[in-house]
Amino acid sequence: MEKEKQGFLEFAYQLYKTMKTNEINLVYEGEVTQEITKTFTSLTEKSLSKSAESNTVQKKVFNVMVECLQNISKHADSLSDEESERRGIVMVSKGDDSYNIITGNIIKNERVPGLKESLEHINSLDKAGLSTLFKQQIKESTISDKGGAGLGLIDIAKKTGSKLSYQFKELNDQVSFFILTSTIKRN
């Protein structure tokens, strides 16, 4: 028992050090709901408003965080069908040149090819191309049962002006872990 406790303390310290080294300001793993989204975005908004960051960058970080979190709360799958919670991991890091918003969530393997295709398509477009795609999509889309309009990733790419970096790690024959990093340049 005592050993276990020691191990945990060591883990907490290592985590703290890793976060400091990687300039990670926020880490969360758990259910992502609208309440969580509101809490994190307002925390981030407050800490940004105290910083010397430009309004433009502050707004972009806020925008991108909302879209990333709402993507999880609307689209994340679960490890098993019995679970209905939409969980994910959320990290925000601040580097010298940029903010990174990293999210990870479970996705069913059958949905991976479609998502990959969308991501590749979005990454192949320049600013004007993204704007055209957005306008086309907003006209054609309807609000799904989940309340999404399928515009989130396009919007993130437009607002950040950076390519979306992503990875899929297959966990078993049913599901994969999807990691998305959105980068907002600081100047």
Partner: peptide
């Protein structure tokens, strides 16, 4: 000041 993409569809 800000709207999410689901709202952007409703604004349209």
């Amino acid at each position: 000041e800000y709207f999410n993409t689901a709202s952007s569809k409703v604004i349209l």
